[in-house]
Design a protein around this nucleic acid. Sequence first.
DNA 1: TATGAATGAGTGTTCATTCAT
DNA 2: TATGAATGAACACTCATTCAT
Lengths: 206, 206, 206, 206
Amino acid sequence: MSRSVQSPPLKPRKTPTQPRAAETVAAIIEAAAQVLETKGFQGLNTNAVARRAGVSIGSLYQYFPGKDALTIALMHRQANQFYKDAAAALNEPTGEAALEYLIAAAVRQQLQRPELGRLLDIEESRPQFRHEITSSGMFLALLVKVLKRNDLPRQSHTDVAAGDIFAMVRGMVDAAGERGESDAANLRRRVRAAVFGYLTGTAGQG
Amino acid sequence: MSRSVQSPPLKPRKTPTQPRAAETVAAIIEAAAQVLETKGFQGLNTNAVARRAGVSIGSLYQYFPGKDALTIALMHRQANQFYKDAAAALNEPTGEAALEYLIAAAVRQQLQRPELGRLLDIEESRPQFRHEITSSGMFLALLVKVLKRNDLPRQSHTDVAAGDIFAMVRGMVDAAGERGESDAANLRRRVRAAVFGYLTGTAGQG
Amino acid sequence: MSRSVQSPPLKPRKTPTQPRAAETVAAIIEAAAQVLETKGFQGLNTNAVARRAGVSIGSLYQYFPGKDALTIALMHRQANQFYKDAAAALNEPTGEAALEYLIAAAVRQQLQRPELGRLLDIEESRPQFRHEITSSGMFLALLVKVLKRNDLPRQSHTDVAAGDIFAMVRGMVDAAGERGESDAANLRRRVRAAVFGYLTGTAGQG
Amino acid sequence: MSRSVQSPPLKPRKTPTQPRAAETVAAIIEAAAQVLETKGFQGLNTNAVARRAGVSIGSLYQYFPGKDALTIALMHRQANQFYKDAAAALNEPTGEAALEYLIAAAVRQQLQRPELGRLLDIEESRPQFRHEITSSGMFLALLVKVLKRNDLPRQSHTDVAAGDIFAMVRGMVDAAGERGESDAANLRRRVRAAVFGYLTGTAGQG
DNA sequence: TATGAATGAGTGTTCATTCAT
DNA sequence: TATGAATGAACACTCATTCAT
């Protein structure tokens, strides 16, 4: 029939109760990740995802009300994964250690599946997705907390600094992943240099 | 017919010699820019561009062999514009001044049409476009030259440093544009802090 | 991508200027009529209509923004056709003659393409179509005018009477068409009996 | 799997003997009625019916071999209900009283659940359902009997008259329901005027 | 050369129906 | 027997591209 008048649904359609269903959902999300990695945005279509997941297109729509909801689910999965790792930063004794941990977590996440991370970073900026839970959102939130620690150079506008640092880090790790870098330690060192250099250079200004 | 299976042509179909044709080409490219800015990737389609340019879809295809060629032409236009401004950096007496100039040029370019710049930065990473002349390419090339100046902290791998700095700067200015920042001086100052902090922090390592 | 957030468009997409386009539009509408007649509501799909019209699905969507718009165009075509015939009723000297003319026009319209008329009568009651110009709407509007003539039995509520008569006539001619009746004169006579019987029976009450 | 290519089964799959099953069947049919009333034809799908009935889709298919069978069951339920009321018309002493009773029953039925009645009237005309037991069928059958009574104006073709009257009445009560009328007495009066007016007007002709 | 009508492969989504558990 | 996960044909609609005029 005609198009829906409703705004497109973004939330999962049903929470799978049976284990089989949970497997299906996970398989679909992972398939989406793989399609995105290998075929890019253009190749990411619901039929391709269903095919790669080894399920029918109908099954995909049992659990995701639309293509966007699928993308969001993937974002959430990545955000969760990142958060599990990165949240430990808050346990570090010093701000410096916490910030280093956060950088390390970002590098780890990115070098694990570089293309996926890069493309999801791009997706996150689409208006439809602005308010979703994302790895970037997690990163930024943790960053704001860490930057308020005493031992780090005091910023006049913590949120601006957090935004800048987030953007720098994301830019650098995305680019590194795109170039095929795999030496995490090396990348970590360079990102640290940029971040701490920024903090020192902006301290007290503003 | 259907979309070509062959690798589609990316070069302009004809170089317009008559002034009338040149105007048409320019109008189409600007229309593409406006559609991209206002409607995003999804809204960027050849019919919409032709309509906004005030030409028929047939005319568009007279000058551009396909959608990608149009995008590339837009990239080239922006790259040229940027280069005209940024190339003057090489005339600066010191490396520091040159680098500052380059940063300023990047900030200028970005704050002028933030969404356009941001979206084109994304487009540039698509495999089809990897080898095209882009603002980013210009920026990176100039950066490599500038970083070799004597007065800047020596980097063990100039190209890596250039890549990092380029990524940082792009990340920061794109994010600033996305947030709607318009204070160029302020942004410039923060980017400078990041860049020089990075250079200092990485100098001699590696 | 995802579904439109707009309410579905019901108006024609472009008014054809070239004669070729006008032909195409007419062919599509007639094809819709034929598909509806032969396959019913369930068989009325855009692909089938395009196929029967001998045009591509793309052409159909050049002129009609959606399936509903196509149905509406068909309704309008039938309404126009009916109105051209039925409006002459107002020229009749007496109310009785006018009413008879109107009935005759309704019978003519219905026996010409009975199934089409019947199915469109049903379609007209769908909420999406309630405010469109339809044969029924034309009929009802003319009826209201005619019933106010002096020589017809005065009704306490002209609009109610018009509604009733309209419903009776439509019910009878639809049913006759469904049964395959083709004797217009006979049907006309029976409808007349019902209508004038009603008018006499309700006159002055209310 | 896909929709059957065979002519689908229309009869209930099993006659429920256990009271529990009978309840389930009744719940499903009532759910179908409610979905039809609230969502129209478009919203009437087996999953929605099962959900509203509070049973699984699998259970629905235990009792009904397909969607059409469900619709038919609903038609039969309404036909039975109508018949229980309307059959008493045959007990009336005069044809006139019988006919009035029949009209009253039709009005009652319609004003009780107007939208349901209207939509089922439409469904009944679909080829798949032409030979099913329906309220309309019951009405028509009773009408034929009543019209043969002596005291009513003799019709040269009783079946044609019955068809006409049935169509008039159905048209009027459906339209009244659609308009939201609830004054049964008033509607009854107008329908009576139409019916008796018709009988008088056609008497002896033919 | 310019126009815009026409094309059709491709994509998102629905829903009747099946069947393993 | 009841459940609900899974299926896939079918259908609405888009958009890059071609070509007759």
